[in-house]
Structures are given as structure tokens and as C-alpha cells.
Design a protein around this nucleic acid. Structure first.
Ligand SMILES: [Zn+2]
Ligand SMILES: [Zn+2]
Ligand SMILES: [Zn+2]
Ligand SMILES: [Zn+2]
Lengths: 143, 143
DNA sequence: ATGAAAGATGCAAACATTTGAAAAATATTT
DNA sequence: AAATATTTTTCAAATGTTTGCATCTTTCAT
């Protein structure tokens, strides 16, 4: 129906058909620049593509994750959040008291990864690290 | 109905009523010594306490986790696994090719944790680290 | 441009987990 | 030991995520 001239090799969704749903979803995640959940993404996508289904959202989140384009985060809610994967991988510190999420990077994690790779002859493609505990404010409240 | 003389302060389930379901579940997890999922735990518990419900299993897994007795692991399946928390915390390396799970410990992770604690004045109570990738066998197959 | 093959989508159903509320068990007070 | 207060359990319903299958879309070869 529609005239599309995008070759599959050009886009970031390497080797896979480029559908409207796919580019739309990836576009929304890129623009968002924060931790989106599946339902937020679904509702945002519906505005531009009203017939899109939640299953498609989940299936593409899974695909984008496998392609290394996004990261899934389990931050403490009952559901997951997703964010774009940039140059430097970051990790999360979650306060069990107030729910605040602090993002951080750590050179020690890179060292640990190198060691693991060598010792196990393993090709590590992704690292998921979350630390939980209590922030300074919540620590004080608990006394 | 039943004569129980266990005082709540004695058991490991500090400050909480000690129910049959609770001690049974914790006992099974202790004995298992491997990564159990909620349904396996439920079926094992049913053998000794046929009226136990799956909701009780989930609610107690949540409690044990909060008390630091067990750890929840998301190893790549659609569902979680649980294991007892011993003296030394360990982490997981999951092969995306064959699904094998390698457990490891790392002093670098401890260093990273210390730094995070100091820099953010944060009291870290648990660390969840998973690395994904391809083991040596699966790497070779992919060539 | 057309047709065939491969792959994605939408829907509904299945699965995994959480939660409200009434009933039951445990703990505390008398 | 009985009465009361507190917490847990069960069941059922709700929420979050995955999956089978028929249909539609995209891609590839002509
Ligand atoms: Zn806090
Ligand atoms: Zn983040
Ligand atoms: Zn492997
Ligand atoms: Zn383990």
C-alpha cells in the first residue's frame, strides 16, 4: 500500500523487516530519554498508530533488547521499565524507602567483567546490575 | 488448635508469626540448594501441606526476600527463581546460547559497592548482578 | 510491478505474579 | 484458659507478560 524505500540494512533494526510499528516504537523510546514502561509506550504509540497492540509492544521490546538497542530495568515496581542503550552502560541504585532511583557508572564493574570474560572464556554481551538499600534521608527516618 | 511453643524471637523469621506454611517453605528452600521457581516450591510444599495456596508461596517469597533470607534471580526464563542467601553473595553468568548458568564471586563488585555507598551515602542491602553472553562452546558454534 | 516466501501483527488465551477481602491462625492481654 | 488484637492464609479477581494462530505486511526474486 504505502511506498517505502528504506532498505533493511540501512536502519538500526538490522536484518529485520522495518514495520511502521517498529520504527514508531523505537522512535518513542529514543525521544523519551527516561525509564518508560510497556503501558506508557503502548499509549504513546497508540496516538500515532491507533491499531497497535500491546503484544506488538512487548514483542518489539524483546527484539530491541536482543539487538542491544535498549535495556530492560526491574527497579522495584511490579513491572519493567525500558530505556535506550547509549555509549556508556549505567546501573541503578534503588531506595527501598522512597523509591528514588540513582544512576551510576563504575570502572570496577568493567574490571570485574574483564576478569569474568577471561576466566570463563565467555563473551559478555550485557550486564545488569541493581543495588537496593536506603538513601541518606530514609536511613535517618528509620532511627 | 495445635500446640506450638516456638517463640517468634527464636526463629529466623524475626518478629513475624511462625506459621506451618512459613517454616515449611523456608525448609524446602534450604534443603533444595538450587534455583527453585515458585511453582516447583508450591508443588513440593503441597506434598506436606496440601491446602497451601500459590498466593502464600508468593507472599512468603517476598517476605523472605525482604528479610534477606533468600535471593530472587531472573535468569532468562519467563519466571523468577529463588535460592537461599548464604555467607558469600554470588552472581550469575547466563549463556544466551545454551542457557547454562555459571555462578561467580568477585572482589571488584565489593569494591564497587563500597564506593557507591560512600559517594551516595547509601546503605546498600542487596546487589543483583547478572551478566549475559555466550559461553566458549556457543561462541564456536556461531562462527 | 507481480507473486511467493518470510516474518510481523492483532487478537485471544495462557501464564506469572500481585492484591483485596473474608476466614483462620497466631500472638498478646486479661 | 479465654478474650482480644494482630497477622496470615485462602480464594478469586486484577495486573503484567508471553504465546499460538490466522491474517496481513514486508522483503526478495522474477
Ligand atoms: Zn530514600
Ligand atoms: Zn537508567
Ligand atoms: Zn552456551
Ligand atoms: Zn545462584
Amino acid at each position: 500500500m504505502r511506498m517505502k524505500t528504506i532498505r533493511k540494512e540501512e536502519g538500526p533494526i538490522a536484518g529485520r523487516p522495518v514495520t511502521n510499528q517498529r520504527s514508531l516504537l523505537l522512535d518513542i523510546i529514543r525521544q523519551a530519554n527516561r525509564h518508560l514502561d510497556a503501558d506508557e509506550l503502548y499509549r504513546l504509540a497508540k496516538k500515532r498508530e491507533p491499531r497497535i497492540s500491546l503484544a506488538t509492544v512487548y514483542r518489539n521490546l524483546k527484539l530491541f533488547k536482543e539487538l542491544g538497542l535498549i535495556a530492560e530495568r526491574k527497579l522495584g515496581d511490579t513491572h519493567s521499565h525500558y530505556e535506550i542503550r547509549g555509549a556508556a552502560d549505567h546501573h541503578h541504585l534503588v531506595c527501598l524507602g522512597c523509591g528514588q532511583v540513582i544512576e551510576f557508572e563504575s570502572p570496577f564493574i568493567a574490571k570485574a567483567t574483564d576478569k569474568i570474560k577471561r576466566e570463563n572464556d565467555f563473551d559478555v554481551t550485557s550486564i545488569q546490575l541493581k543495588m537496593e538499600g536506603y538513601c541518606s534521608k530514609c536511613k535517618k527516618k528509620m532511627k
